[in-house]
Amino acid sequence: MAGSFSFVRRVYLTLYNWIVFAGWAQVLYFAVKTLKETGHENVYEAVEKPLQLAQTAAVLEILHGLVGLVRSPVSATLPQIGSRLFLTWGILYSFPEVQSHFLVASLVISWSITEIIRYSFFGLKEALGFAPSWHLWLRYSSFLVLYPTGITSEVGLIYLALPHIKTSEMYSVRMPNTLNFSFDFFYATILVLAIYVPGSPHMYRYMLGQRKRALSKSKRE
């Protein structure tokens, strides 16, 4: 019984990783192609659908952690995926005013390269039981550059969206209403920005620790 579950788990995670890998490969291809042909102003339009699908699929990774399919702690997975979904749907999709900014290109390129490396690494690990040493190094080293560029792009785009969030009052709930409840998306977004200040260095240190452990273990083996 345990053997059957282990086999099904490996097949499922292999398929999951390679399917999402294909989605991010599309994002990178369309982003680079559009940058070369028509410029950064059109990158979002070119990548919108595959970006939304690939990033939203990551919600399953929270479930994977919760049910024990993977060892990644939910406490680390949840903020990463939550911030990405907030950018994908709460900022880029919701506010067309920021879609043509050059930070969109740097964001999706940083995200897509990171995820192409990550999903192919875990796809190989699940399918074959191992990944090449160069792939391991890339998996735990590429963030040294791509995390700062990605975070800078995220913060920049949220900041650029703030005036449009304020004037549009999108997603805000005003009183009086039947639920006797109010919510201001503008101030919620400012709170998200504030969380980036301590959250980003903390996450970077966490990934540095992961890198040290993974590469040290690789050398011992």
Rank of each mutant, 00 (worst) to 15 (best):
A2F: 10
S4N: 10
S4T: 13
S6P: 08
F7H: 12
V11D: 06
L13D: 12
I19L: 14
I19R: 06
A22E: 06
A22S: 09
G23T: 06
Q26M: 14
L28I: 06
V32M: 01
K33Y: 13
L35V: 11
L35D: 08
V47S: 02
E48G: 07
E48S: 12
V59L: 15
L60H: 05
E61L: 11
G65K: 04
L66I: 11
G68Q: 14
S72E: 14
S75G: 03
P79Y: 02
I81R: 01
L87Y: 10
Y93R: 08
S94V: 07
P96E: 07
A105Q: 05
L107Q: 07
I109R: 02
W111N: 13
S112G: 09
Y119W: 04
E126P: 08
E126L: 05
A127C: 02
A127T: 00
W134H: 05
H135Q: 07
L136K: 11
S142E: 11
T149W: 04
I151F: 14
L160D: 13
T167G: 05
E169S: 02
M170C: 03
N177C: 05
T178Y: 08
N180V: 09
D184L: 01
F185E: 14
A188I: 07
V192R: 09
I195Y: 04
P198C: 11
P201W: 03
Y204L: 15
R205K: 14
R205T: 07
M207D: 00
R213G: 00
S216T: 00
K219W: 00
